[in-house]
Nucleic acid binder design. Structure first.
Lengths: 178, 178
DNA sequence: AATTTCCTATCTATCAGTAGATAGACTCAT
DNA sequence: ATGAGTCTATCTACTGATAGATAGGAAATT
């Protein structure tokens, strides 16, 4: 059992906090106190907050896409079910927002590189979803419309269910998406 | 022409800032500087930030619901079209997030009274939408599922279109909701 | 009518706490 | 010895918040 590196601890703590209070809702000091180092040590790994935020968003997107697997596996229905389940886990297991949904809401108040990574998350998700939907035989336009609707509905569903404090709201939306 | 009161100026500035950077993304001093008073004067009108946040959310919800009008007017299709248009205006005219969508994303990091008002916004929206959908002759359960889906999809659509910097994403989602 | 009292809204000045960030020294394994 | 990682110590700027003073007008009292 190898203990996690300070870098990993920083990222884990920062992600948890960013998914709760957003980019402006966490600080180097809070993270430092939580993992038992000094805030100066965090600046060693991430010179500026923007660096930490950008790595956070990139890492989140990579992990998310990896969990989805390829869009052309199994059946479209199974792929979409897996997509919904991946989103559901964000709120069900972690009890938190989707990091990039949070960053997306704050997009015009984010440092450039954080905003860029956030956009990438959405773009990659739209590509994945459109690839799945295209297999259903609909046209390219219809696939993109479906992709945007699924992504938007699930991001909104996390906000809705967390705000109302009831995961049933997420399931209602997810099940209704067909 | 009566000039707006300081109180109104505070609320307008705070709302604009909260809809950009969230609850933790605006400060008394920024608002004070913008409208040309001292931050202490804002504390006179709103003793604590929580007070300002709560009034902000309540006022936003009241205004939003007022713009919708009654759920039993015209036809269900017209009502839903109006609902979409009201959401669209948030991003199209103001270029900003739905205030309560933003607060909803941050819900677990908000002071109690701000969170409460945010929940109220969502609850009132769900009631309004379910009342409209119930007129279509579907059951009560189906109406609530439809209500949750429309609300979630539109909140998500604002995030998506703002993040991607293209209002077309909002329209794709809104049009696809039937 | 004149005077006093009170209220509203703002100001100045200040507080303790925290923000992100930096410089330089220490530790320890290679 | 070198370099990675962490520390202490510190900086400037800003956070929400409070105390006390002040100006102007409304209301009450004389």
């Amino acid at each position: 059992m190898t203990e996690p590196s300070t870098c990993d601890l920083i990222l884990a703590s920062a992600e948890r906090r960013a998914r709760t209070g957003g980019y402006h809702g966490f600080s180097f000091r809070e993270i430092a106190d939580e993992i038992g180092v000094k805030s100066a040590s965090i600046h060693y790994h991430f010179p500026a907050k923007e660096d930490l935020g950008a790595v956070l968003a990139r890492r989140y997107a990579d992990r998310f896409l990896e969990r989805l697997g390829p869009p052309d596996a199994a059946t479209p229905d199974e792929r979409i079910a897996r997509y919904k389940a991946t989103f559901r886990a964000a709120v069900a297991e972690d009890g938190r927002m989707c990091l990039c949904g949070m960053f997306g809401a704050e997009i015009t108040a984010l440092p450039a590189r954080v905003a860029e990574e956030t956009r990438d998350f959405f773009a990659r998700n739209l590509l994945w979803l459109a690839a799945v939907e295209a297999r259903r035989g609909h046209g390219e336009d219809a696939a993109q419309v479906r992709a945007a609707t699924i992504l938007a509905a699930l991001e909104g569903a996390i906000i809705l269910s967390r705000t109302m404090g009831d995961l049933a709201f997420f399931d209602r939306v997810a099940d209704n998406l067909g």
